[in-house]
Amino acid sequence: METERTSYWVNHLAQLESEAIFILRETAAQFEKPALLFSGGKDSIVMAHLARKAFYPARIPFPLVHVDTGHNFDETIQYRDEYAKEIGAELVIGLVQDSIDRGEVQEEKGPFASRNALQTVTLLDTIERNQYDACLGGGRRDEEKARAKERFFSHRDDFGQWDPKNQRPELWNIFNGRKHHGEHFRVFPLSNWTEMDVWQYIKAENIPLPNLYFTHQRDVVHRNGSMLAISEVVIPQTGEEVERNATVRFRTIGDMTCTGAVYSDASDMEAIIQEVATARQTERGTRADDRRSETAMEDRKKEGYF
């Protein structure tokens, strides 16, 4: 039996797009000072693209905020700066280095040090200094089990913490963003998207991405099951396996100390979609930060991580 179609049939991407645009507009309407968390990763790029659509022909009515560990790929930073300029958005950068300099956080020591965990402090600090009352994030429920119960409008207390048992039910298209002074929300317009949806949408909309997502040659070190790019912050230690000019790409892009590469010769969107379709590991499987324990994400979310 073929599914019948009326002339008002729309595909899954159009449904997801419409829903995300609705959430973006609700955020602009319900909050006084929203901000869009922009990491230069594909999910935040899709979100910024959706924001352009939501408010066209006006500029997006909130700034792009990037929490920069200082250990990002140069390509990411370059993309971020160019993109913000192109769409005429205000760019606000919170530096983990500033949090370290102010003595708010202690930098991890040793050859395997990562600033990933410190981001949360800088993020909360950036939110507080700028008095953002809603932060749009690119989180998706399919990413990790602790996210499967995340709301579109995720309520955080004055400490930025998430209480999984104290979240507001979300029915139909109605979102309750009422809050007391000092509380704020994280908002996730891509909640219902999967990694595959994101890639299909990028292809369908022809959205340019940082070239880190496509195949390239790079020196890598194998560490704890991840394949990390060798840089001044990831220095191979004695006994670690180093590979020169490996043919790799990244499935997610984050801090260099915890973003693993995968072997790939996918050079265009078509090839990436094919690769995602046959992937045998989840995308966060390439993230060293989720490997620290089985409930790592749940713990970090409670602390205020995205």
Partner: peptide, 27 residues
């Protein structure tokens, strides 16, 4: 489909959780 630690410890589901899958016909 087990989500949060509280559930795994108690072996019950405590809230609405959203899951995703797709076939060539539908998401």
């Amino acid at each position: 489909t087990d989500g949060l630690r509280a559930e795994r410890e108690q072996g019950i589901t405590i809230d609405v959780a959203y899951r995703y899958f797709a076939t060539p016909k539908r998401k």
